[in-house]
Nucleic acid binder design. Structure first.
Lengths: 352, 352
DNA sequence: ACATTATTGAGACACGTGCCTCAAAGCAAC
DNA sequence: GTTGCTTTGAGGCACGTGTCTCAATAATGT
């Protein structure tokens, strides 16, 4: 087997090592290491020599070997709402499923559940995290001043953070989740096209209209309905606050008072409650229903024809993308744009 | 820093190494190596001891370290049609784009173009490949006896193969691409729903109806139209054979002879030709048009409203999935089901 | 010129695994 | 017991990089 040291001519098959780099730069391997890992006490001129050599021979550090030498492990934490909800269940399932793949890359993931309605508790949990315990944290939490501050301090302590699904600040670059405006707009287009010309009113059901995601979905939906389907009239959002009795009440009230309802848009991530509320008032009515996320409940509704289409994001992709991004952050690398873009997917009975 | 050898108590943080494994199994590291790498000359009893220890301490070999020791590189080849087509261009773009990410995993990819209409040439190219040159080959080629045989022999020579996009045999497990029946069915559902009740005829345009992909898409489309939208009448497929003049002629003939055409389904992967043929006969007609794949041409048509929806597969995902699968094949590993499933995606103006 | 400091080099060992050699031990048949 | 064969152990070197120590050299100030 060939060895680089015995074969000084550049081999196009083997990639250059730090040894090659040292040789070409005319310095020692110790100095190469000093430059590569940004240690101080190296003359500017020497740094330039090494960098020139890096460019010349196209050196790229072998991350696997480096991590092996450092015994590096990536410890990531997912901060998620309390479970019980179906969409969250899918997320959890994929975190566990991907565990085996991650462990090959020395990535360990931990999940911590927090009460989404208690910003102080969330902040406290974030405050308990340091570089001693985790290298990166993916946070799914509503946007509040307390949480925003806790995240800020976490970053100052050197822990990498990543808004996960629930978008925090308008840091469009570093976050994992779909464009909710586009998701709402897509739901609107499907609604309009499926109704094709038929006029009437549209019921919109949300969990709470205060979250950023709800606002964005609603605005995207309205934009499309107003622009492309002016014969449709989207009613003000109904808020369930996640309570089934309230959902039942407001839905049945709405159907009692409104006459010509032709479509229902469930913009909440958890469609289960709204769907069963609708089942009460809609024995077998002709009404286009669009919902979000692929969960056991929505898939069943799709199959039995209750729901016409789903606008979804792939939970497995969300999880893997979060891990890849956290890893890139801790390595100071960048990720592949096209791989990390979370698509606004449309799911019907035929492309389950 | 802790060292495993000095700290015999099981550390939950560090994963067990071959050294730990040898200690627990009560054998030497050499024997562990013999068992792990399936060398012969080891007593059955000893093999069992080691395997028991593997299970006991949950040993998983550190692939990065192993590949480092072996100086392993993965050399994969993509055998693709001659370029020029837009969908293929997207594939190529993503192969090159992913190069940087792959190289971190010691994966190098090469692309070789072959004439799709010359099965003997394709077979010849495949015959020239051995383990000396490549570890795995992703093959996008129409299904012919010559190609099938060449693939068979390639596998016998120890080179791993993977049908890529164009499905070869019904080896449903090991192949990269979408379920074309589902893709056709999805196109059918969109067509039916967008027309919602309006009766009429549907034009179906294919490149050639002989390929497996075309057959499957057509059968999926017909199944849905017949079952769910009986008021629609899908006409026999028009075949362009990839020739623009022929496309223009057959499309204009069809529109001259048929009266009530309400929808057009372009099931060819390259929609450019059919689209411009349609533009000639359809100055501004009300007709639902569904096409396949996201290319510059179809995206433009979507934006200007010519096309109503696209049924697509993500080219970046296809490429990365192929590489992951080839890597898993050469490592004798399995892949994450949910990650490798290529989704039948629906793209409209709002979720570009 | 000298002392002092800043910079560099040489070398070692580590990470976890693969792969090789050589010797030692176990086992069988005679 | 001797011979020959099979199985195992001990140990070393390699992969590419990180991270030490200690010495050697260069640059600086006086």
């Amino acid at each position: 087997m060939l060895k680089n040291t015995q074969n000084p001519s550049e081999s196009t098959l083997l990639r250059p090592t730090t040894r090659d780099l040292a040789r070409v730069a005319g310095v020692s391997r110790a100095t190469v290491d000093r430059v590569l890992n940004g240690r101080e006490g190296v003359k500017k001129k020497t740094v330039d020599k090494v960098n020139a050599a890096i460019a010349e021979i196209g050196f790229v550090r072998n991350l696997a070997a480096a991590n092996l030498a450092k015994s590096r492990t990536y410890r990531f934490l997912f901060v998620l709402p309390h479970s019980g909800e179906q969409f969250l269940g899918e997320i959890l399932r994929h975190i566990h499923e991907a565990q085996t793949v991650f462990s090959a890359d020395m990535v360990t993931t931990t999940v911590r559940h927090v009460d989404q309605n208690d910003p102080f508790k969330i902040a406290a949990v974030l405050a308990s995290i340091s570089t001693e315990t985790f290298d990166g944290v993916a946070i799914m939490a509503p946007e509040t001043p307390q949480v925003r501050d806790a995240i800020q301090r976490l970053q100052e302590r050197g822990v990498h953070t990543l808004p996960f699904i629930s978008n925090q600040a308008p840091v469009r670059d570093q976050w994992v989740g779909i464009d909710n405006h586009a998701a709402g707009a897509t739901a609107g287009t499907l609604m309009g096209r499926f109704l094709s010309g038929r006029p009437g009113k549209l019921v919109v059901i949300a969990d709470s209209i205060l979250s950023r995601a709800s606002l964005e979905r609603r605005s995207g939906f309205d934009a499309v309905i107003n622009a492309d389907f002016p014969h449709l009239d989207a009613l003000p959002s109904l808020e369930t606050y996640g309570a089934q009795d309230r959902a039942n009440r407001i839905v049945s009230e709405t159907f009692r008072h409104q006459s010509d309802i032709v479509g229902i848009y469930i913009l909440a991530s958890e469609a289960g409650g709204p769907l069963s509320a609708i089942a009460n008032v809609l024995p077998s009515q002709r009404c286009v229903i669009i919902a979000h996320e692929r969960t056991p409940c929505t898939v069943n509704a799709l199959i039995d024809g209750t729901v016409d289409a789903l606008v979804t994001q792939d939970p497995g992709h969300l999880v893997r993308s979060a891990v890849r991004k956290l890893r890139a952050l801790t390595d100071g690398r960048s990720t592949l744009q096209s791989q990390e873009k979370i698509r606004v997917e449309i799911v019907m009975k035929t492309n389950l």
